[in-house]
Computed example of a mutant assay.
Amino acid sequence: MPIESSKLGGQSYATKTVVYWRGLSDTICAFRKACMSVIGRRLKEARQRAGLSQERLGLEAGLEAESASARMNRYETGARSPTLELMERIGAVLKVPASYFYEADDLTAELLLTFHKLPKSAKVRTLEALKKGS
């Protein structure tokens, strides 16, 4: 039995559903763009800090020579979304944890970099001190 449009504020159920999904799609796209801008920004910062070109980083991370530079550029600009596996390989080349690329907060990202550089014994001590202090 069809739902009367008058019960839906003058719009059909199908119209309301399409409007809802478009709004949800726009929200997802905005979230994805925000995430990509974080990944791209962190990727570019780490690459430049390491003194590598986009091409060199792509090659060392295992990308094909023909597309390494273009792909890295697309990841940095947010035009493409790298896989977690690739971000882990890039992190290994740049000597940063993959989680760094996804962290939106600058202070937490800096903490991740600093903690990552510590030897294991210092990481354990630091973690214990942080737990005691909280």
Score class of each variant (00 low, 15 high):
100 Y>L: 06
60 E>Q: 14
7 K>N: 11
110 E>V: 11
95 K>L: 11
124 V>F: 05
98 A>H: 09
9 G>R: 08
129 A>Q: 12
113 L>P: 06
102 Y>V: 07
115 F>E: 12
74 R>T: 06
2 P>S: 11
79 A>R: 10
9 G>T: 09
127 L>Y: 12
43 L>D: 03
81 S>W: 02
1 M>R: 15
59 L>C: 00
68 A>F: 03
130 L>P: 08
20 Y>H: 14
123 K>D: 10
53 S>Q: 09
129 A>C: 09
67 S>W: 05
52 L>V: 05
134 S>G: 14
40 G>H: 01
95 K>N: 15
9 G>N: 01
106 D>I: 07
25 S>P: 02
6 S>R: 15
80 R>P: 06
40 G>I: 04
83 T>S: 15
47 R>E: 04
96 V>H: 04
19 V>T: 15
94 L>M: 04
108 T>V: 14
49 R>G: 04
36 M>V: 06
12 S>H: 14
48 Q>A: 09
101 F>Q: 05
20 Y>A: 07
132 K>I: 03
101 F>R: 09
20 Y>C: 03
17 T>R: 14
40 G>T: 04
124 V>Q: 12
30 A>D: 11
98 A>C: 10
79 A>C: 01
46 A>D: 00
132 K>F: 01
64 E>A: 10
52 L>A: 09
33 K>I: 05
89 R>E: 08
69 S>R: 15
116 H>G: 04
5 S>E: 11
86 L>I: 06
122 A>P: 08
21 W>C: 10
93 V>F: 03
31 F>L: 14
73 N>R: 07
78 G>R: 01
100 Y>P: 02
21 W>Y: 12
86 L>N: 00
6 S>K: 15
8 L>T: 02
120 K>M: 13
27 T>M: 09
91 G>W: 01
92 A>P: 05
90 I>W: 00
87 M>E: 02
99 S>A: 15
123 K>H: 10
65 A>W: 02
111 L>R: 15
95 K>T: 07
48 Q>C: 03
82 P>T: 10
37 S>N: 09
14 A>F: 11
19 V>K: 12
119 P>V: 07
92 A>G: 13
90 I>G: 07
35 C>F: 07
117 K>G: 07
67 S>G: 09
94 L>F: 00
91 G>M: 00
86 L>G: 00
1 M>Y: 01
133 G>P: 00
42 R>P: 02
114 T>Q: 13
85 E>Y: 13
80 R>N: 13
124 V>R: 14
86 L>M: 13
61 A>L: 09
116 H>K: 07
18 V>D: 07
33 K>R: 12
115 F>Y: 14
89 R>M: 03
60 E>V: 08
71 R>E: 09
122 A>W: 00
13 Y>M: 13
95 K>A: 10
30 A>L: 02
8 L>M: 14
38 V>T: 01
